[in-house]
Write a protein that binds this DNA or RNA. Structure first.
Lengths: 224, 224
DNA sequence: GTCTATAGCTGGATAGAC
DNA sequence: GTCTATCCAGCTATAGAC
């Protein structure tokens, strides 16, 4: 299930470049930790569970990763990069503005369809345990990305391509429309009784609405 | 901090109609449980913490509420009603459609400004512990509310007041735009470094954008 | 109704044999 | 590197004195 995580998380290589037999144990622990931490959060996943799921034992975990918390930080970093790397690359590209926005939304829907549990995981851990996690996030320089987006929006507004658009409000809207449907997944499925497959189809269709919504809000009336 | 919760949760009266001195102990436990469960989740809040915060002891909690889980269910029910009662009332009213949508969004922003932690709390507990909580939610008959909204949208579309609007997609959009900014609160504050007060101001302004966004998406072009 | 003491369990981490 | 046994801190719940 998490195999393809590697595509999005180059930093993860740091922990997988060994060639000895021990690599296998580390890998198995990481795979189990990924699954359990992201599903159940830090408190909800015990090292005992992780040891059992990876067919190792608690001593292995502490031998290779020093502590439960250190292992957790590695998983958090990975998960954050999954959500952010592709999107940051798009936001810093020089694509035409409407294409960029569409690619931005689409890449969220694509990544989140594969890893729907990550946003809730991150938002949760940030709520209960911010300090050391903030460091991990700030290293990715989100401010720089926001500034670049601001400059882009201002430039296009001057050209008359888009309306006056406050960057922060616009960013919150895009995030809201992309991320929330996935956070809401399990709630909706449990309460409405639709199957997970049906909800996936609903979200797939929903992406189109979101793209139209956002582009219409950006374009000045005369261009619509 | 949670005193005004009573306004939104009439069911809560069930637990507060006693007049003896013991009421005070129950009240204090409920107040502490409210705060701690909603901030830290079921696993993150221990009965020890709740006892300490309410200046009672563990035996009191079990005496009055039988078990930690039973106490939790009461808090969950209350919290759910806070989010849902006002909104359900608006969705079932006969207000003109555009007024209704604006009131819908506004009531979310108003309730969530006061209880910003509740959505994450509910989404979380639904993820980790759905079965018995689903019952609590289904008792509020959300399906009925959705059907009423569907009928309303269809009726207005026939009159030409609004575009063709799929109820579920529209509902998800409104929920996303209203709820996510609050879920995102702590993350944004910690990462960007803006103060909580500044973020509150951002959200306050943001409400206006959301209302415009949603109404523009509903209105047919000729009416804009 | 109140409160202390404690049972019984699960958590993370480590010592020490191999 | 591996694994068992164990420590100790935390948890919920309850027994039983007052």
């Amino acid at each position: 299930m998490f195999k393809r995580l590697f595509n999005f998380a180059p930093n993860f290589k740091r922990y997988t470049m060994y060639n000895s037999d021990t690599t296998d144990v580390k890998e198995r622990i990481l795979a189990a930790a990924r699954e359990l931490f992201i599903s159940n959060g830090y408190n909800g996943a015990s090292v005992r569970d992780i040891a059992a799921a990876s067919d190792t034992n608690i001593a292995h975990i502490n031998y290779y990763f020093q502590s439960k918390y250190h292992l957790f930080e590695i998983i958090f970093e990975e998960a954050f990069d999954v959500l952010v790397q592709r999107v940051f690359r798009i936001l810093q590209s020089e694509m035409p503005i409407f294409e960029m926005v569409e690619a931005w939304i689409h890449s969220y829907y694509e990544v989140l369809a594969e890893y729907p549990q990550i946003p809730l995981f991150i938002l949760n851990e940030m709520n209960h345990n911010p300090e050391s996690l903030v460091t991990i996030i700030k290293m990715r320089e989100p401010k720089q990305v926001l500034d670049k987006l601001s400059a882009r929006l201002e430039e296009e507004r001057k050209k008359g391509t888009i309306r006056e658009t406050p960057t922060v409000d616009f960013g919150i809207n895009v995030l809201s429309l992309c991320v929330f449907p996935f956070i809401f997944n399990k709630f909706a499925v449990k309460v409405s009784g639709v199957s997970s497959a049906e909800y996936k189809a609903i979200i797939k269709r929903h992406e189109k609405y979101v793209i139209r919504f956002v582009l219409d809000a950006l374009k000045p009336c005369k261009l619509q």
